[in-house]
Design a protein around this nucleic acid. Structure first.
Lengths: 362, 362
DNA sequence: CTGAAAGCGCTTACAG
DNA sequence: CTGAAAGCGCTTACAG
């Protein structure tokens, strides 16, 4: 309950600081910004600026009387700490840079929510970069963000991770890789096995008796390819042809799911089930089946990936892989902050697993 | 094409600066960070730090020879500008704070994409805050963000706007209000009329011959209430009872749309059409009709709001209001930057309008 | 538990 | 077109 620099400041007070007889600015140079500084607070509270700084960062080290006077002064003057000064002086910022492939994908938004929830509690802000699945864009964003001296990075691509690791150790910036798992516990990562998830879908379709499953995918990023790899493996183990697939290197949309379904029916009319590499595609495939009067799952089974909000309540409800998106964000942020604080990290490679939600569509 | 501080820095070079015989740090105090600074670059290029600063910010004011030497030095040393120092010295940051009600809502994500696209081109970063439709949360976020001395705010609630405006003018921070339109051109805003959009849907249903339309809404924020206001007005003008509605103060989900449809059928069995205040609800309503075997639009018409990706390709396709989400973000950012640069703003109240996409569901 | 001094890496405001 | 000086508002590193 002790006041910290993150407690909400009283807006009304800050909005009317005219009552403050500010004595310092007259003695400042011509560059005075008119901002209330730690020096103003110190003067008001009758202590040194250093003590104000301590009251804000390590209140336990400040005598209670001083502390009270300092916080009264902060409220009275409407002091707002200047992060730029803090960052410059300490060479450490409270900003984490997050890079995700896409912001229009609900999946990553939920991950960002997890990140935000953890970081907000830990007193960090974050900058969000969208790489658009593009390597050059990633590098440029990292370069831009480095200028902000972020405390750390949360990344969603292994390439990015390697870029940061290649910096000289004196200027190394901690990073955690999200979604995919790293090779060892030294390479911090939080995610689940895309390969095993794809494999689980294949096993499920095979067990349900489907003999001609297809793999449908757009936005062919490395994770999609791993789902595919697992899916193919599952089919092959069951002696089923894994080459019934339609892959389009275009952005994922619901409409693209309808297109992919049309294509697979043209190319493989005997296809009896589809694994769509995400739920947007699955929804589009379902709509296309409805449009063509194809009964789901009797004539065509549909499985998706991620368990977005509509999967459970579609008609029929859609079988899908439930992925720990929020937790990936939350736990990645937690791991990064532990690293920043130099705390022991129990597992540097955190597998959060996944779950197959079997529903009406298969 | 002239180099600016935003151009991509050569990652490979920065990753291997061991070759650099850095001469300055030895003379610095014990707090030396090991970072390459503008002073290092100046020494390498044989100019003063001030000239390096100019080469980065106003290259036109630096002689071409010096400029070349400076950029060569920057590349060689792997210099990355320190934003914290720049912000502190100039009292101006290149960070814009953006507050949106929700991040799990696709609508705001697309707006963020527009913001990002404009700001990236203008050299700004942005911080994203999620208010959760909560007033207290908004105030707290604003207070937190003020500590980062953002250049400006992009807001999505009028209350926030007023908080910022109430600051003393010496410390006023420019803000643009998104989605809703302000009262005058002095209050910067970019959006469209929620009331007229709701009205347009009512007119459409009435013209199609529906006599018993219902309004379905969750997440009862002010904008929803304005859509409702317009919708009611449209019905009343046609002599139709506007009180057929189900309002739930809960977060919007697809499943909630199904629930709302069930409720309205219980409470108003004669209802022949529904205006769902967003497309998630409309999708849920459609699924519920399919589940119950209710023919859309013959037995029940469905209209949504926003034109999310599935609206056009659902079976049947869903009539909805196409909103300029991306443009709202882009234009808001543009207006804010114009304000920051002290440029003339043609229209401080920018109405981007909306469009009614009439499809199969009505 | 407290404070004086120095410094973080830039930019402003001048002066040439 | 260029540079020396001072300062932005904090924190570090000492010293009491």
């Amino acid at each position: 309950m002790s006041p910290t620099r993150n407690r909400p400041l009283p807006m009304t007070q800050r909005a009317a600081p005219k009552s403050k007889p500010k004595s310092v600015p007259a003695t400042r140079g011509s560059r005075a910004t008119g901002r209330v500084t730690i020096i103003d607070v110190a003067a008001e509270a009758g202590v040194s600026p250093m003590t104000v700084s301590r009251a804000l960062k390590t209140p336990a080290l400040v005598q209670e009387v001083s502390r009270h006077r300092i916080f009264a002064a902060i409220d009275k003057l409407g002091y707002v700490p200047n992060q730029a000064a803090a960052t410059l002086a300490s060479a450490r910022s409270l900003v984490v840079a997050v890079l995700v492939p896409s912001l229009t994908n609900t999946v990553f938004i939920e991950t960002l929510s997890g990140i935000r929830d953890y970081l907000a509690g830990a007193g960090y802000q974050f900058l969000i970069g969208e790489t658009g699945y593009d390597r050059a864009k990633e590098e440029q964003l990292i370069a831009t963000y480095l200028a902000h001296a972020p405390a750390g990075f949360l990344l969603s691509s292994s390439e990015q991770y390697e870029i940061l690791q290649s910096r000289p150790s004196s200027r190394a910036i901690p990073a955690v890789r999200m979604f995919d798992l790293g090779r060892s516990h030294h390479e911090l990562s939080v995610g689940f096995s895309q390969i095993r998830a794809g494999y689980a879908v294949a096993r499920h379709l095979v067990e349900r008796g489907y003999r001609r499953p297809a793999f449908l995918a757009a936005q062919l990023d490395p994770r999609m390819m791993k789902r595919r790899e697992g899916f193919r493996k599952g089919l092959q183990e069951a002696g089923i042809d894994p080459d019934v697939e339609v892959l389009l290197p275009l952005p994922t949309t619901v409409d693209m799911g309808a297109q992919l379904l049309r294509r697979v029916l043209e190319q493989h009319p005997s296809c009896d089930s589809v694994f769509c590499c995400n739920d947007d595609l699955a929804l589009g495939a379902l709509f296309e089946c409805q449009r063509q009067g194809i009964s789901v799952p009797r004539e065509m089974a549909i499985a998706g990936f991620n368990d977005l909000s509509w999967a459970a309540c579609a008609t029929p409800s859609i079988t899908t892989v439930v992925t720990p998106r929020y937790d990936i964000g939350y736990k990645s942020a937690e791991m990064l902050v532990q690293q920043l604080k130099g705390e022991e990290i129990a597992r540097g490679r955190l597998d959060l697993g996944f779950e197959l939600a079997v529903r009406e569509s298969t």
